[in-house]
Design a protein around this nucleic acid. Sequence first.
DNA 1: TGAATGCCTTCTGTATACATAATGTGTTTT
DNA 2: AAAACACATTATGTATACAGAAGGCATTCA
Lengths: 254, 254
Amino acid sequence: MSLAEPSDRSSERSPSQTVTALLSLRELIVSGALKSGERISELAMVDRIGVSRTPLRTALVKLEQEGLIEEIPSGGYAVKAFSEADVFDAIEIRGTLEGLAARYAAERGVATMRLAELRECVAEIDTVITAGSLSEEDFEAYLRANERFHTLLMELSGSPTLRRELERVSSLPFASASAFVKAEAALPESRSILPIANEHHRAVVDAIENREGARAEAIMREHARLSYRNLMMALRNQKVLDLVPGAALIRRRS
Amino acid sequence: MSLAEPSDRSSERSPSQTVTALLSLRELIVSGALKSGERISELAMVDRIGVSRTPLRTALVKLEQEGLIEEIPSGGYAVKAFSEADVFDAIEIRGTLEGLAARYAAERGVATMRLAELRECVAEIDTVITAGSLSEEDFEAYLRANERFHTLLMELSGSPTLRRELERVSSLPFASASAFVKAEAALPESRSILPIANEHHRAVVDAIENREGARAEAIMREHARLSYRNLMMALRNQKVLDLVPGAALIRRRS
DNA sequence: TGAATGCCTTCTGTATACATAATGTGTTTT
DNA sequence: AAAACACATTATGTATACAGAAGGCATTCA
């Protein structure tokens, strides 16, 4: 109470125009409302989003750094197109950096309490899997636990720089740890991946506890590669692919 | 001739105000003219650099994404301060990504001609080392060959995404492949590192040629760690440290 | 003497005006 | 009919004006 913000809602101030523009633009791009290769007209976005050109431009610069859009030589920006190879590479890069994070955690050691938090995530996921129903709420619980696990691991690396880079890489929607979760739920043949993924989680916690850096690293790399299989399956099934965030940015091989 | 730009100089148009602001600001930060933690006053920079606030602001956003500055919660930006641990981590991240690049090159294979280019760099560095004089021009030749080697490797990975991330990580001046080159030249005990570094180069080319992915990866990781030793030596010697780009950003342990 | 408060200065976030360059269209010419 | 050219429209890059908020300083009170 005494620490409450002066505003009415607890610590929730109205988002700046720049944040509004950034979120709106990202949503338009990831959802596919703006097609790959298409030029992003600033004035059109001003009309569409309702902010002036200045914050919109700031958002465009940030999105360019994020890798979602690219500069047009003659000026302005266009929505980027990603080949299937680009997506695989982005996943591999994420896996490599998550591997480094896991190794750091193992080598540098983590507090017992934080290890317990990791195990909690694993247990939660186990519960969802064994239930088997995958109802909407189960699914949400899985998603949250999975994201919490990956976020925790990032923090346990003890490296703000690594954390930064990982967040960057994961900002490509299809490269994030949860990119294919919805697809997994939809595809029966993908569901079998869930227990394997959680076994990876379990193993990496053990490795961290035992200070086995190389093992922890290898497991997280392989863990990311589970996304490969999901991606390949999704690419063969348009309905499932539509469940993958940012799928509209992927240029199918002709 | 027929392909020449309409401008007077061949394909060299005057840099935009945004580019001017970006380069000027980066120089001010890396050189230490703006101290770590110091707030960057936009109006002061406008006076100092001679561009208006708009392109200056664009440059600030880009520098924030690069990691050289950080947002102040109450608004504006401040020059970032890096701990020694941050620098080590940044080097490890670069090594990890260069390792991935080398592995990709090995696994995916590269044209014989590109391999020859890599060997050319190695040979050039050999020449400089055996000469032993390390005159100004020898030194420049070494620097060029070293950078060309690392740039080539990045390209040979065949992954634009990886290339992008590597360029990003290397944008932290003290994390780049050539960060400690000047320090190496100045410190006699560091010069012994040069032949070792080039042996790494040679070995990684062999590994790539023989399609030995794991070996190529391990070598490049270890190669980056040579920077560790240089960094530690430089940190004990202020005069040498001043030769390292961005050293002003490193907050010495008290 | 130290701390708190109120005012003033300065800064950032945003909107908008303006100039130059690019793009697209319609017409004309071959 | 196709290509090229010229013009008009619209785009982006840049500068600047304005409002609200943050920070510093001096003054005052305990």
